[in-house]
Design a protein around this nucleic acid. Structure first.
Lengths: 228, 228
DNA sequence: ACAGAACCGTACCGTACGGTACTGATGCTG
DNA sequence: CAGCATCAGTACCGTACGGTACGGTTCTGT
């Protein structure tokens, strides 16, 4: 009954990683109807091995999401000297990066999976293991990860007197909205609209400028300090 | 073979509406694993009737989404005399309305369903019937519906010289981002965070003010005219 | 009152898939 | 080579669910 081969750590063997990549590819291509059989066939392994390594179907899905999440980690930033232009460039870089990520087929497939998963486990009450909740994992490696990375930049900008805000999280959420707008929702709902490199670059630049317009310390604080 | 009882119009009988409401409730409570049996049981009807009325499971789902979409239609606005304050109030009203809608359990369940659906029909190539694509339906009655309703307001504000923009759609998307921020994504991913009436009111007011800050005609047009 | 349609409840069928068990091939260790 | 572990491949089982068929009951029109 207890899963014997529970690894826990995020260290997968090369073979396991290959299996997870196969599952990921299948997930991107075929949506959530990927079957253990299909994964086994594509990865050239047996179903028994899948169950031995990952416990059950949900374990495989969780491992797949964690495996992808581990891949998208990007380098931290060193707190350089900040003037208004370098701050703007930094924000623009973040925005472009984020837009590029969320428009990925992989990101779309994983978000769909995690959302469907979040909608299914309503019944079982106490099951709030955060390592088994795909929604929590995706959220942790998406929205909250970039918040953790962006907050220091925002606070550095504030300390340098370039921008003004009281609640760093509120400021971040505004920036998030200015960047993502309706892009992610539309993509997740299957709206096929192209987002070229040029689009991303332009939208990222616009978002950065708009954010600075709202939060520049030269502006009256009433507009930027409204959110609690 | 061809579905005999195809109604096409959105007119459902009272009994059918009751069935669809049952399906909707089940969808909200149990996520996407609602079964025809469960719908029949809750609606106190037979499976045969479900198949007779809606063709197949997908038809039932489509009808359910359309039925809910028909319910959330809100009244159009009459173009009143616009000053900056009434424009701000109008935007705030839109924002509060939209936030209230997307934080509904029903909206969350329907969006999850539609996204999962959008991810599943990748295989069948030519099947782009817009009345059968849940993602398209949700998008049409959500994001695009409010755009159609908000655009006249924005253009009235521009005609009155209160705000300035070149592309109404770009302006709308910015407003959309300022309102929604990370709310919908987090809710869809199962992040349980409360959004009280007071939160919605405050966030809506902030969004309206921020939008006007970006697009006010007293501002230099460089910031608001950047988006193509 | 009677005929026929609509419809509820349920039994039934086929299939797809999660999970398990078994077999045989390959490779490693002593 | 002997012994053992790993794992691919596949056959197998149980179940859940989509879809259909059918008997029995209520409603409707004449």
């Amino acid at each position: 009954m207890p899963s014997a081969g529970r690894h826990g750590e995020e260290g997968f063997t090369a073979r396991q990683q290959a299996v997870l990549d196969a599952a990921l590819g299948l997930l991107v291509e075929q949506g959530d109807q990927l079957t253990m059989m299909a994964v086994a066939r594509r990865a050239s392994c047996s179903k028994e091995t899948l169950y031995k390594w990952f416990g059950d179907r949900d374990g495989l899905l969780t491992a797949t999401v964690q495996w992808q999440a581990a891949k998208v980690t990007v380098g931290a930033v060193d707190r350089e000297k900040l003037d208004i232009e370098s701050l703007r460039a930094r924000l623009e870089e973040f925005a472009a990066n984020w837009l590029a990520v969320i428009s990925t087929k992989t990101s779309i497939a994983l978000n769909r999976l995690a959302m469907a998963h979040a909608g299914s486990l309503k019944a079982n009450k106490g099951k709030r293991d955060p390592d088994r909740d795909l929604g929590a994992i995706v959220l942790e490696n998406g929205r909250f990860a970039i918040e953790r990375r962006l907050k220091p930049v925002l606070e550095a900008g504030r300390d340098a007197g370039l921008i003004r805000f009281e609640d760093a999280e509120a400021a971040f959420r505004t920036f998030f909205g200015l960047v993502a707008r309706d892009v992610q929702i539309r993509l997740l709902l299957g709206d096929r609209f192209a987002l070229t490199k040029a689009d991303i670059a332009r939208d990222a630049a616009t978002a950065a400028i708009q954010f600075l317009t709202l939060y520049a310390s030269t502006n009256p604080p009433a507009t930027s300090g409204a959110q609690h």
